[in-house]
Design a binder for these strands. Structure first.
Lengths: 216, 216, 216, 216
DNA sequence: TATGAATGAGGGTTCATTCAT
DNA sequence: TATGAATGAACCCTCATTCAT
């Protein structure tokens, strides 16, 4: 859960040697189009044109348009949850973060970083989940089961320590998530407008989360 | 901000005498389809079939498919913000709710009621906002400017009374909103699954909001 | 074949007591639309709107769109050939016009007058003839047989008198017609532009016709 | 302005290597349909069927139905005026045709040849001009400005020589054009009927033109 | 007589996908 | 591997016409 630089997912695509040059262009074009106009409203023809590639080329690499979407969202989810999947909870808890606040702040900053770097892809994921049952299942499986589970353990630990409220751990996790997603949403909506101070809002959000979960 | 029964928007459509019987069926079918598969992935032909109506009939009443969407979302937004637009802030504050907690709880319940009754339409609104600049503008204009402004006033009042934290009022409002929207989203995602207790989750959310905003 | 004022066909419609007020508006709207955009490209809906009438009203008076077209073109043709049908050739020839030139000039002026007054309707007739076999037949029957026949008689008379060339009478008639229609076409195309002097062009056309038909 | 064989425009399309086999079939089908029923009354579906091609194929090659029309009429106009654009007036006048009659006869025959070979396409052009402002402008620009200008020069030359009447050169050109177009129109209308002798009518037309323009 | 809601066939066009090159 | 022509189903929408009011 450190602050070290991760490369963005899109950059990962670009450095993947198993991908053709054209394939990379297709992915980049698809990401931009899907995030702007949505999956259903983006035509493969439009993607091909934006990628500077023949329409057939898309289908040489991805059997269907849907598969192209999944080739974006699947690694997206994998990377999204990676830090949680690999983290050794015991080590994390005992050595890295004495206080919950510290852990939450670190996590928030880290994932916020990830989200900022992969804004378009996160946008696609969130936008398309309502319309694709398989995407939703995949999401629930990954985020809901794996990550959620890990967080629940974490929350329980801090609850046992008496640091935070004795609410259902799953609820606690959901509340945190909502606050963070809300922050990102506001950032997408407001970013650039004069009244929006992204850093300060982040701090406010963290403060809100912390106090919302305080014991008593 | 009372708990009195409001009729759902869809019922309002159904009781609107200026609408043909067929028109009502079209609206109902469109609401169902749009909320399930999204605007772009719903064909006018599918709507017509679901409504038991000729496809041409749709276009007699709504010049375009987009206009049909807006005829759903526009009154949706109006009703959504209605309680805030008409509420007399001074009266509200001085007589109805001595404590912020009471007001928030009442408001949450009231709007939660509205959202539950109009789940499909709210879903449409939230789902389509990313894809329709005009919808987004309309939303910002209504929710962002009108409602937000009113809430900011309210928050300032309670801040002056010393009840809640001295954070930017706009941030406070955003944080509350995120938590509530997060609750609804979870409800949509989880409703029906065994682990989900909607009532309790609502209480948890309110508790979280209250403490998140506590002074000090 | 005198120069007396005839009312235009459209005015005739307007004064016809057997026509409803609405019906007159429909005819006027149809004439304008058909002449501007053509029969096939004009919708009954557009006609109804331009006439300020419900779409159903059109079909109360005219069973089909085609019938509406014919209700314009049929009287058009009747009026177009009326002077020729009623004229008493012998009288005309022996008393009215000693010289062919005089007759032609009078006829040209008279029909030109008619065409000017009914520009839109003539335009419709000429435009639609290529697309409607029945219109074409009707046209051939009326203009081709009746009028043509009369003109052929006339031409023969002047040929017997030795005034004009001994070409096939039918060819003579066709040549005159082409020159006159050419004049009207040019008028439609050029009218209003600075270089176009309608009166002078008409005189040129007549001169051209006369000399084109001169003996020897 | 020689009588050498030109290939018809449609044959040119058929020998154009830049066109797909299907594209040629589409063009042939469109030419036939447009000339018979008119542009507005011809459906792309009908063209596709007649061409033995999927409807989508049409739109792969021509973005819109209108573009398909223009892809027929534009080269049509180019070829129509080509002989006039490339002719060296001085050479023509001094060496080829001592008398105006000879030039006119040659030109008439040459263009008549072209028109006969491209009857369908000429028909389309003339039929659609009233309904398409852009076509009309294009026509005026090409025929009206370029060709007309050249003819005016020619006419002036012969007027200076004293061969023909001292009428406005532009009127002279118009009168000739009307007579020729009239001939073609009659040919379209009458061709096949027993009384129509195309060759003789052409000679009559030329004679009529010549005498119509005689001095004095 | 006049309306305008309703129809469903058909309009032009776009779509994701296939396949010969 | 990459192309782009070809497909035909499906898209949104318009059409002429009908009919209950």
């Amino acid at each position: 859960m450190s602050h070290n630089q991760e490369t963005s997912l899109e950059q990962l695509f670009m450095n993947d040697d198993s991908l053709t040059e054209k394939q990379k262009k297709i992915l980049a074009a698809a990401i931009e189009s899907f995030s702007e106009k949505g999956y259903a409203a983006t035509s493969t023809n439009a993607i091909a044109k934006k990628a500077g590639v023949a329409e057939g080329t898309i289908f040489r690499h991805y059997k269907t348009k849907k598969e192209l979407l999944l080739s974006i969202t699947a690694p997206m989810m994998a990377k999204m949850i990676a830090p949680f999947v690999i983290m050794d909870i015991n080590k994390v808890l005992e050595h890295d973060y004495d206080h919950l606040e510290d852990f939450l702040r670190a996590m928030v900053k880290n994932r916020m970083e990830f989200i900022k770097k992969n804004a378009a892809m996160v946008k696609i994921l969130l936008q398309e989940i309502p319309f694709h049952p398989d995407l939703r299942e995949q999401f629930i499986e990954n985020i809901g089961k794996k990550v959620f589970g890990r967080f629940v353990e974490l929350v329980k630990y801090y609850q046992d320590k008496g640091d935070i409220i004795d609410m259902e751990p799953s609820s606690v996790v959901r509340l945190i998530a909502a606050s963070l997603i809300g922050y990102v949403g506001a950032h997408q909506l407001m970013s650039g407008s004069p009244g929006w101070n992204s850093e300060k809002e982040l701090e406010n959000s963290i403060h809100y989360i912390m106090h919302g979960l305080k014991k008593g």
